[in-house]
């Protein structure tokens, strides 16, 4: 007899399931291009897009995708600095404008924001940030009206799940190509699309206050938050997530963020009084 194993046999362990955050960037880019051209041109008959360019990676990727879908000549990038905004935000946004060769406007929102806050001098940083975010949306919708364009949203899945955005501001554009991609996936897509490294590699920031970064605001890195979110969305409880090596503190932080912000991912709550309440009984899809 040959080949008979004697003594201790090798043991092969199972691999614990963990959802992959890897994406095929070429496929993602093609799919999102098709999404934008189908939704804009075919469904709405609109050929132009307006993107608010912050200097960050989400809006850069959005602008790149719009340029691929519609041609750069049909994309208008709008920079909307406030007087305390970082100058790096403006110059990083310029890198995108130069790379794409799209039309661009710079509209300083300081006078509009300060015109209101003049009456609210005690407004704290959060309120000021919200006023800036909502003013920027006012500008984007108005520019879109002027240009016969549609404003395109830039929010990613991580910030949507963590509730890290201003309600009815960042989330208000009618189309959002990145809303089902985690932040780390947006970074991967950005590298694939050739977004300048200065934008992809810098620490993400809402730039509503000096020296603000997302990860210090959130108390967790995106890399870690995304892995925990991916498990949480599938229905894994905290103990099963922790089994995969995540710190209970991080898991609790992410879960609290998600569970405290479900309302931010919905339209306003309407009192239901009839058998024909809109979106409760009267159900029609958005593209009908």
């Amino acid at each position: 007899m040959t080949g008979t194993e004697r003594g201790t046999l090798p043991v092969i362990d199972v691999v614990r399931y963990e959802p992959s955050l890897e994406i095929d960037c070429g496929l993602a880019a093609r799919w999102l291009e098709a999404f934008l051209s189908d939704e804009l041109i075919q469904r709405r008959g609109i050929r132009r897009a307006v993107v608010g360019l912050s200097g960050g990676v989400d809006s850069a990727v959005t602008a790149y995708l719009c340029a691929r879908a519609l041609g750069p000549e049909n994309v208008t990038a709008v920079r909307m600095p406030y007087r305390t905004s970082s100058t790096a935000s403006l110059s990083d946004a310029q890198l995108v404008i130069d790379a794409l060769g799209c039309a661009a406007r710079t509209i300083d929102i300081s006078a509009a924001v300060d015109g209101y806050l003049h009456y609210e001098e005690d407004a704290d940083a959060r309120r000021r940030g919200n006023v800036m975010a909502r003013t920027r949306m006012l500008v984007l919708f108005d520019q879109s009206q002027k240009l016969g364009a549609l404003p395109i949203g830039t929010g990613n899945k991580t910030e949507r799940l963590m509730g890290y955005f201003t309600w009815h501001a960042d989330d208000s554009p009618p189309l959002n190509p990145l809303g089902d991609l985690f932040k780390t996936q947006v970074w991967a897509l950005a590298r694939y699309l050739g977004v300048p490294a200065a934008i992809v590699d810098k620490a993400p920031s809402a730039d509503l206050e000096a020296n603000q970064t997302d990860e210090s605001d959130l108390g967790i890195t995106y890399a870690l938050a995304d892995r925990i979110l991916a498990l949480l969305l599938l229905g894994y409880d905290d103990a099963r997530i922790a089994l995969r090596g995540y710190a209970p503190r991080d898991v609790a932080l992410v879960r609290a963020r998600v569970e405290g912000t479900h309302w931010k991912r919905h339209l306003p709550t309407t009192a239901m009084l009839s058998n024909t309440a809109i979106n409760e009984f009267y159900l029609r899809p958005v593209d009908y």
């Binding site: 992959s20 890897e22 994406i23 095929d24 070429g26 496929l27 799919w31």
Partner: peptide, 11 residues
């Protein structure tokens, strides 16, 4: 409807 981008060039 399309789901899953981690394939090799295919959904």
């Amino acid at each position: 409807p399309a789901r899953g981008l981690d394939g090799d060039g295919e959904l």
